[in-house]
Design a protein around this nucleic acid. Structure first.
Length: 851
DNA sequence: GAGTTTGAAACT
DNA sequence: CAGTTTCAAACTC
């Protein structure tokens, strides 16, 4: 049943271009945008504005902690910008200065980045951590404040003590004049190449910042603690990096955040300034987020783009080394996306057309997946076009030039998989040829079982490409014929065909009749893809020609539920590795869970009516099913009971023996650790994206043999990325894998240690109190993941009560940070990986002996 | 292939 | 927020 509103929407696109939708008055002035952002109510217009940059990359799922943060961030930025304006020439003066510093810096990075080093270096970009946290939500402003802190430190006269208050009294950040001074001194030291002085100042400054952070920690909520903590890490890493670079006698110091931020902002202004005067600054502001990160990737991209102009020139460039390098770089970006808490996905062009991809990939939310690959394959210049945010039709997809679009396809696969909750960034030397595509394609198939929708037509596209590599994904005569044939089919025939094809290919086509494929009922729409010819839908509006309708509807739905398009199946980064069968096939990770859980009443979770069962994951506490008999894992006891188990390790072990092993329908032994479950339940932060069956091929045999191998070894960003030939990528600790909120309690620590990526944590006691408890992020998740107050919120542990913001942990914060940061980003991944392995092995031993 | 059942999504 | 309706997939016959 169509509301008039919807009818309007549906009418609109048929006669409108994406930019001329009648439903869009679009007062896109910066002021309007600013005002809109100030309002807690998200206006449609504001949302529409998002489209260009974010509509398709907005709100991340649980991983992503807090949905709908981007606007907030924009707001923050605008606010800070406002203040900046008071200081007059921040962008001019500082931008220029930073320009001189930063660009050479990038050049330097480019020069220094080896094909291997590049990837590692940028994969572990600390900025990601920061951005990650930045995206964490309206109540999490500390990182922004830190940004401002640094910016102000640099730009604001030291006599002033600017107070940045976002309106939340808890959120105020008072700048220390000392910091401004320090920054100036540091800069001087840099200019004079006075390493010693620089180091000293650096230390001082960072200490100041630490103090600042600590003092602010007293003011802010627990959630903010965590964010600050991450920001602190980010800052520290930056400072370290800055120091390192100076020590390497680089005349181009990668300065701390202030430089990057200011420069980024300036870049944004410059980039967008030529385009349109009105709204350009707004866009610049929007871009700023991405730009900052993109600075990291950009270098990597530029690394190989000395030969190429755009990121995705694979259709131009023959296969070969350069292509390979290309792939590495771009996939590296993907890898970073995979490892980030995907809250944003910004793409922009910079520096000679080099496509710089920045931001993390949101695993689907807000992004119509088809669009990305197209955007990427269109080349840099087009990325910023309106179409960037557009869906991609199946036809267009199939027509994506190239065969050499391996990369694009690779990206596709990554994205699409990601959309499904899996993110497979495969960097393999094989990828330079079609073999790479096949691998990726197979990755998709691996993930298909649990996430059918996203494979949708992508599957078909890949199949076609695989079937006829010489055509390289171009429309073959056959496929055209087939499309025509499909078009001429009666709905009934189509329906039948859809059923058959879904049966034979494992991918679904929708059969919608009344929803016009503009509701979540539609699998295609829900999966973020356009309907394809093989769909049997009627009155379908989920097509490229109705882009506006689709996007509007999508936004509408997202406004109701920001996570509506998020992957339903999530899996925590610290979950156990996927289970492996004897024959080497990988099963659904035992810890993968349905994000919101099922609500089955009659099917006992034994039929595909059950979303959990359908996704081949066990039911969790999030489920409210009755008489659950899910063969992939029954709903466990109450969270409280399991929390009790946590508190009593002996019970935990007992329980583990009872519940760890469950038999799947296929007779597969599925490891079911209560620990995993708990984590998944506590914070479904990470969509399945992180590793999954798809990474199996890149997991070393030894790893496979160790079901309880450390998470560090199996980190998605790492294993999926690294190929057998890319040892240097072995271990990648993503910020997400590091999420400290997973530490539940002291008793559990060592087991966690053995199974999760916390081997870098020296000792539990070194952790700040706030990190020992999970409630902070849990709370955050609760807020953000359940905009509808539906069952998205993970249960909270009783221990949350203990979470009173204790200042006793402050010292630990710094201690922890300083100890941990160095190992956080594997600047020397190989050695780090060795370390990780060693540690993991020892943990494994300990764990084994414990058992 | 028609009809029924089921549970998610949407609506009130 | 709970109850109801709508919807499309899953299932049955």
């Amino acid at each position: 049943m169509d509301s008039p509103e919807q009818a309007d929407r549906i009418k609109a696109p048929s006669s409108s271009t994406p930019t001329s939708s009648p439903t869009v008055p679009v007062p896109e002035s910066p002021i309007f945008n600013y005002i809109s952002n100030l309002s807690p109510i998200k206006s449609v217009k504001a949302a529409r504005y998002q489209r260009f940059f974010e509509t398709h990359f907005p709100t991340p799922p649980p991983v992503f902690k807090t949905p709908r943060v981007d606007l907030q961030r924009e707001t923050n930025f605008l606010k800070s910008d406002k203040i900046d304006e008071a200081g007059s020439d921040v962008h001019g003066k500082c931008g220029n200065r930073a320009n001189a510093i930063l660009i050479p810096c990038l050049e330097k990075e480019v020069q220094s980045c080896s094909p291997s080093g590049c990837v590692d270096e940028y994969l572990t970009d600390p900025v990601e951590v920061e951005d990650c946290t930045n995206s964490a939500g309206s109540h999490v402003r500390q990182p922004n404040n830190l940004n401002r802190l640094l910016q102000f430190s640099y730009t604001v006269p030291k006599e002033t003590i600017p107070e940045v208050n976002d309106g939340n009294s808890e959120d105020c950040m008072i700048m220390l004049p000392d910091q401004a001074k320090s920054m100036d001194l540091i800069e001087t030291a840099v200019n004079e190449r006075d390493t010693e002085r620089f180091d000293g100042l650096l230390e001082l400054t960072s200490k100041n910042v630490n103090d600042q952070v600590e003092s602010n920690l007293l003011l802010v909520s627990r959630t903010q603690h965590y964010e600050q903590y991450v920001a602190q890490i980010s800052l520290n890493v930056k400072l370290q990096n800055a120091g390192d670079q100076l020590n390497q006698q680089s005349s181009n110091c990668q300065f701390p955040k202030s430089f990057q931020s200011v420069e980024s902002y300036k870049d944004c202004l410059e980039n967008s300034g030529s385009a349109a005067s009105e709204g350009s600054s707004k866009e610049a502001i929007l871009q700023q987020r991405g730009t900052r990160r993109h600075l990291q990737f950009e270098a990597a991209m530029t690394c190989k783009s000395t030969e190429e102009e755009s990121l995705i020139p694979s259709h131009v460039e023959p296969r070969g080394v350069s292509n390979h390098r290309h792939t590495m770089s771009s996939d590296q970006a993907i890898a970073s996306w995979t490892s980030l808490c995907p809250s944003e996905f910004i793409s922009s062009t910079q520096h000679g057309g080099t496509l710089a991809i920045s931001g993390s990939f949101p695993s689907g939310t807000g992004l119509h997946r088809n669009s990305i690959s197209r955007s990427l394959s269109m080349g840099s210049d087009r990325v910023l076009s309106k179409k960037f945010g557009g869906y991609m039709s199946s036809q267009e997809e199939k027509l994506t030039p190239g065969h050499g679009n391996n990369l694009a396809n690779s990206l596709n696969s990554c994205f699409i998989s990601s959309a499904a909750g899996e993110l497979h960034a495969r960097v393999d030397s094989n990828q330079q040829d079609d073999h790479g595509v096949e691998e990726i394609s197979s990755d998709i198939f691996l993930s298909r079982d649990s996430m059918k929708p996203p494979c949708n037509y992508l599957h078909a596209a890949f199949s076609e490409q695989q079937a006829d590599p010489s055509e390289g994904g171009m429309h073959t005569t056959e496929s055209i014929d087939r499309a025509e044939e499909l078009n001429q089919m009666s709905p009934k025939k189509k329906r039948k065909r859809a059923v058959l094809s879904s049966e034979s290919e494992g991918c679904k086509r929708c059969n919608c009749r009344r929803s016009k494929c503009l509701k979540l009922y539609c699998e295609c729409f829900a999966a973020g893809v356009y309907c394809v010819d093989s769909c049997a839908c009627e009155s379908c509006y989920n097509k490229p020609e109705y882009e506006d309708t689709v996007l509007d509807t999508r936004q509408q739905i997202e406004s109701r539920n920001p996570l509506a398009f998020a992957p339903k199946i999530v899996k925590h980064a610290t979950d156990s590795p996927a289970n492996v069968l004897d024959d080497g096939n990988w099963t659904t990770p035992a810890s993968a869970r349905h994000k919101r859980g099922c609500n089955c009443k009659k099917s006992k979770c034994l039929k595909k009516y059950c979303e959990c069962y359908q996704a081949k994951v066990g039911c969790s506490d999030a489920c409210r099913c009755e008489g659950c008999n899910n063969s992939f894992g029954k709903k466990a006891g109450s969270m409280y009971q399991r929390a009790e188990r946590w508190k009593n390790p002996s019970h935990c072990k007992l329980d583990a023996t009872e519940t760890d092993i469950e038999r799947t329908e296929a007779g597969t032994v599925t490891q079911f650790s209560p620990r995993w479950e708990e984590f998944a339940d506590i914070s479904n932060l990470t969509p399945l994206s992180h590793y999954s069956g798809a990474l199996a091929p890149s997991v070393s045999p030894s790893t496979r043999d160790c079901p309880k191998v450390s998470q560090a070894q199996l980190h998605p960003g790492s294993s999926s990325l690294k190929s057998s030939s890319a040892n240097h990528l072995r271990w990648h600790y993503s910020p997400m894998s590091f999420t400290p909120q997973l530490i539940e309690n002291k008793e559990a620590h060592y087991e966690l240690d053995s199974e999760n990526a916390f081997t870098e944590i020296r000792s539990y006691d070194d952790m700040p109190e706030m990190l020992k408890n999970t409630s902070t992020p849990t709370k955050e998740i609760k807020t953000c993941c359940s905009p509808n107050k539906k069952r998205v919120s993970p249960p909270q542990f009783p221990s949350q009560e203990l979470m009173s913001s204790s200042s006793s942990g402050m010292q630990s914060v710094r201690k922890f940070v300083w100890q941990t940061v160095p190992s956080f980003p594997p600047l020397t991944p190989y050695s780090k990986s060795n370390e990780g392995i060693t540690q993991t092995e020892s943990d494994l031993k300990r764990n084994t002996s414990d058992h």
